[in-house]
Design a protein around this nucleic acid. Structure first.
Lengths: 162, 162
DNA sequence: ATATCTGCAAAGACTTTGCATGAGA
DNA sequence: TCTCATGCAAAGTCTTTGCAGATAT
């Protein structure tokens, strides 16, 4: 990989040209901008978060297109959709082969704060992989992604309860 | 435990009298019926599912009360709220000390089918417990519940893709 | 008695749909 | 050129809120 330069940069359609065209989709400006925003954020964003950021780069875009594009990307497996139970979905670019960027969540049921948690042990990573394989065999289910979330009280809310 | 008879049955307020009163809440008919429905279902129900079932037992109840009661029970830690990403929440009675009734989910991203999965290995159960303890220490977070969900394609949708 | 709980109706939040216009290949 | 994609506005869903009357303790 060439330093300071991403794959596909400078080529028609940019970095995700192949993925989109490969699935028969057109490489449009809104789609590229949305992917760029997701890539730069590197963390869960709501549809509105994305809309606001995209709007700064490409003001003509509508919220509808954000939703439609996200749905598309989720179907393609490029983006993962999360639900923290607060009524609004969050979206995050899947890290493809970069397994290390993967993370899970601690969600405070009192204040709604979400803490990312990515320091897995080797043991955990292995177990998840093994479990996925077993599930695939047993239920004939093709696992494409997973979510692990712990619910409870964060530091602050814990303190307030006393 | 007396066979064929549940704790609290026949006593004022029924089985959950203690939990409710202990938190300072009143033991009302809607609350008892909602808890009964959740207990009998033994699986994830949407607010509307619950409303319909409750309605058959106690027709005067409103959907609002179902929502309000569920929120209360979630706050109390008696009920767990799930989000499968289809825009409607599911609720399920927490199994308290009965760790075996606990289960996880396989969610088909194509048709939305949800498969329960409860055949954990000893290894898995132990690891989750260990992880919860570590998180509690590291982030000062009191874990009360957790969710593990695998997303992908179910048997049927897999076959259709060919 | 009285603070809590409930039901109804209305509002609210997020997301999806219909349709004419505009843009990619 | 000829689909596919977009934006706007309107509709749709699920969920929450306001308030007067009903209920538990």
């Amino acid at each position: 990989m060439i330093m300071g330069r991403r794959w596909g940069e400078g080529r028609p359609g940019g970095r995700w040209h192949g993925e989109l065209r490969g699935c028969g989709y057109r490489v449009t400006m809104p789609r590229q901008v949305i992917l760029q925003v997701l890539d730069e954020a590197k963390k869960h964003l709501s549809a509105e978060d994305i809309f606001i950021k995209v709007h700064q780069i490409y003001p003509a875009i509508g919220l509808t297109t954000v939703y439609r594009t996200l749905e598309l990307l989720v179907r393609m497996g490029l983006v993962h959709k999360f639900d923290f139970g607060d009524g609004r979905a969050r979206y995050e670019l899947c890290d493809g082969n970069n397994e290390m960027a993967h993370h899970h969540h601690l969600i405070c049921t009192d204040c709604g704060r979400v803490i990312d948690y990515d320091d897995f042990t080797e043991e955990e990573t292995e177990l998840i992989k093994k479990t996925e394989k077993e599930l695939a065999k047993k239920y004939d289910f093709t696992v494409r992604n997973h979510t692990i979330q712990f619910y409870g009280l964060c530091k602050k809310c814990n303190a307030l309860k006393k």
